[in-house]
Design a protein around this nucleic acid. Structure first.
Lengths: 145, 145
DNA sequence: ATTTGTGCAAATCGTTTGCATCTGA
DNA sequence: TCAGATGCAAACGATTTGCACAAAT
């Protein structure tokens, strides 16, 4: 279990700049815009493509490659957590604190599960010389019949 | 195991044929070969590409597209379970019973964790109208420093 | 001025698809 | 025979990369 420090940081204006600076990333126009979109309204699970579209609609012209760059850089510095939901595409979660996910299969949508809702009464022992970096629990959901 | 009466060069039990028949899949040369490779030696986690190479090296000429078809068909009929490890590529697990996985990040390798090694003391409640189809636990590992 | 980031388009990777040909029942 | 499977190559979607240009320190 890693990742702590998830008190929803409401980021607006100059905070964004210092947030990026603290992370060692130059606060460029594009990064500032992306961080604002990501943290503007609560926690989110975004795909690169979706964030790209959103930025364009918000009148921020940037390239898809820049979005990918930014998402990976943000992930490296701990601002985002990458989720391997299912299938081909990656999602990025603005909630980097310890928690898990429901995955709605039909919609490719993720819903947060607080860490406290999943308790391991027994932890698997990692193989010799290995250590646990993270435990991902994905609870797959289907519409009830 | 005895050789299947035919052109197959691998050691094939008659069970393979009936296994496919029971699943509603025509026991073709390619499917028989793939099932034999998959179930020949204990449980495995294979990617399409890896299985394809393996088949070629075993002297079974087939196309990558056929491997993809077969893997998905096998999954549909419950002979395999698809794993969304991490990143772009899919893995298929010959162990379809209830269990979980270690994921060795550096090697993209999966190791089974028996279901009994992970106990939930608290189960998350699915949202209204939804039901749980499966719970995947992935314990990510890194080489200890 | 120097360093770092950006945009674009082409390249890559895993996977899927269309269609002509082949094969098992 | 003939539905169903296969092979091939082209198509595809998501992501990455290479490099000239632009922006931040």
């Amino acid at each position: 279990m890693l990742a702590e420090g998830g008190q929803g940081m409401t980021v607006v204006g100059p905070c964004v700049t210092s947030m990026l600076r603290k992370a060692g990333l130059r606060p460029t126009r594009q990064r500032i815009a992306l961080v604002s979109l990501l943290y503007g309204r609560g926690h989110r699970h975004v795909s690169a493509e979706a964030l790209y579209e959103e930025a364009l609609h918000a009148g921020i012209p940037l390239s898809l490659a820049t979005v990918y760059n930014a998402l990976h850089q943000f992930t490296e510095v701990g601002l985002l957590r990458e989720l391997a939901a299912d299938g081909a595409k990656s999602y990025f979660d603005t909630n980097v604190s310890d928690h898990h996910h429901f995955f709605v299969e039909a919609e490719n949508r993720m819903i947060d599960i607080p860490a406290t809702s999943v308790a391991f009464s027994d932890l698997p022992v990692p193989p010799e010389g290995m250590e646990i970096t993270r435990i991902d629990v994905v609870v797959r959901l289907r519409r009830k019949v």
